[in-house]
């Protein structure tokens, strides 16, 4: 796989909370139009890594470059403007959806495009409606989030991310909070996005999704990427003992 067309390039990224080093020198490339899944035990740093890429957390050191933008070097002082520009290139889907409960489905989706990106409301609403149609939620556009199922809320969460027209989609365990029977509708939407050529970085425990959809799987533990490679290799024939035990535990919990 060529590394020259990286849409996301991360070098030596580090982040500590107090004395706890949560990310230690992470190197990571996601080629344009590919899907990378991030697996690893609880507390291994998956969420923190995604948050650093979206500027929700400011790393202590290292560089991040997204979609041809400048490599932002967190070794020095990073201005709010630079952080904002980095954030604008990606959009995040949260484990707990984090929809705005006081806004309707449509308002949730157009909030960013209209209020932040200053696009005309009518145009943003038309775009949003088209996206909602695609995920089968056009009928819900004037409903409030509480009246939707978890799977529907998460699909709105995905539409809200898409409406920002990002270059990179970040998913933080998008199906972990869902009842088992609702997981499929979200995963199949993500699969569809992958086939349309979206560049995606997905933290997940859904190994089947990783096997079917991912171009590369990264196994994280203790703030480092322990192993990386094609899904068949990392999940089917891991080199590292830690990876093997983790995959074993997820596939056969008993």
């Amino acid at each position: 796989m060529s590394r020259t067309e990286s849409l996301l390039a991360v070098r030596s990224l580090a982040k500590s909370f107090g004395a706890e080093q949560v990310l230690r020198s992470i190197d990571l490339d996601v080629p344009a139009g590919t899907v990378t899944t991030l697996i690893g035990p609880s507390g291994s740093g998956k969420t923190t890594l995604l948050r650093c890429l979206n500027g929700l957390e400011v790393p202590d050191a290292g560089t991040v470059a997204v979609a041809g933008g400048p490599a932002v070097d967190f070794g020095g002082k990073v201005s709010k403007k630079t952080l904002g520009e980095l954030r604008d290139r990606s959009a995040m889907v949260f484990q707990h959806y984090n929809l705005f409960p006081h806004k309707t489905v449509l308002e949730n989706v157009v909030e960013g495009p209209v209020v932040v990106q200053k696009r005309p409301r009518a145009e943003a609403a038309a775009d949003a409606t088209r996206l909602l149609e695609r995920v089968g939620l056009a009928a819900k556009r004037d409903d409030f989030p509480f009246s939707l199922s978890g799977g529907q809320q998460q699909r709105v969460g995905i539409v809200r991310a898409l409406a920002l027209r990002p270059k990179l989609l970040l998913f933080d365990e998008p199906t972990s909070a869902l009842d088992a029977e609702l997981v499929g509708e979200v995963l199949s939407l993500m699969k569809q996005l992958a086939s349309e050529g979206w560049t995606m970085l997905v933290a997940t425990h859904e190994l089947q999704f990783a096997r079917e959809v991912a171009n590369e799987v990264l196994f994280m533990d203790g703030g480092v990427i322990v192993e990386r490679g094609a899904p068949a290799q990392v999940l089917g024939n891991p080199r590292e003992e830690r990876t093997r035990r983790f995959v074993q535990r997820l596939t056969d919990p008993l």
Partner: peptide
């Protein structure tokens, strides 16, 4: 107000 609301707001660029 849950912290996730701040995060989502910042995520969309606010």
């Amino acid at each position: 107000v849950p912290k996730g609301q701040w995060e989502a707001a910042h995520m969309i660029g606010m």
